[in-house]
Design a protein around this nucleic acid. Structure first.
Lengths: 134, 134
DNA sequence: CTTGAGTCTCCTGTTGCTGGAACCTTTATA
DNA sequence: TATAAAGGTTCCAGCAACAGGAGACTCAAG
């Protein structure tokens, strides 16, 4: 099948499928006489696989690694689990950071009158002027 | 003061301070005879302000806007509050996405034996093969 | 006087695509 | 059968927000 159909079936934009071919992540099965990329079912399955792993927050190099494990029948599930747990830890770190951020932002936003006057605890926070103890 | 000291005082890398000058976010007060950027206290305060707003997850254009509000004595705090609340909403969305991701990843990782065998629910999930109903 | 640190500009690379230009092939319709 | 639309192709540029490095300078200390 041609790239458009492969894109539809994998749920990826055509541009992205072409990009994945360019960087050697998911190669088409071959080329037609006229030079069109030709995708078979296996290639489409890989595209879908990558699409999902990307949505799970894995980077392209990580997807590459997962894909090679996916294609390797002799793999050990421990290898995959290790990757997943590293990613989970990274997600937890990021989540904690973002939560802290949101909480502090929410706190200062709450303290801001949000009216026509210029006094603003939010800006004060950014400027690090502590208005509670002048 | 020269860029190195300004960088130290604002807690930003020299490269970043130079970058902010390039894009017109925080301009130095002037230039020395030999062409060195010259930062005064006000410029350093702005650098610190930007440093903090960046850490709060605001983009450069948003920092620009906050900075102009910060510099504008006639501002209305409502303007700042609106920006902050938009950002809080965005953070909440992102947090929800990341939490979902982590939860599902944790769920499949939990189901994976993580041993020397090739069977792996994590990969199955990415390949969308449901092993519970073959 | 020299050495080392700091600064300058300019260029490239990062991540993962996305948009566009200019051109070619296939497919559907008149 | 002619033609137009849709869908391919390559290559080039750009996004965010810097980071790294080359090659040339200026400055302060010993």
């Amino acid at each position: 099948m041609k790239i458009g159909e492969a894109a539809r079936e994998s749920g990826l934009p055509v541009k992205t499928v072409r990009y994945y071919a360019d960087i050697g992540l998911v190669a088409p099965q071959g080329r037609s006489e006229s030079g069109y990329r030709d995708y078979d079912a296996a290639a489409v399955a890989k595209l879908r696989f990558v699409s999902r792993t990307r949505r799970f927050g894995f980077t392209i190099p990580e997807c590459r690694e997962l894909l090679s494990l996916y294609e390797n029948d002799g793999r050990e599930s421990a290898d995959v689990k290790r990757l997943a747990e590293t990613k989970i830890a990274a997600l937890n770190t990021r989540l904690a950071e973002l939560t802290d951020l949101r909480d502090e932002l929410a706190r200062v936003a709450m303290a801001c009158a949000g009216d026509a006057r210029p006094d603003c605890p939010i800006l004060d926070r950014f400027a690090a002027l502590d208005r509670t103890s002048p």
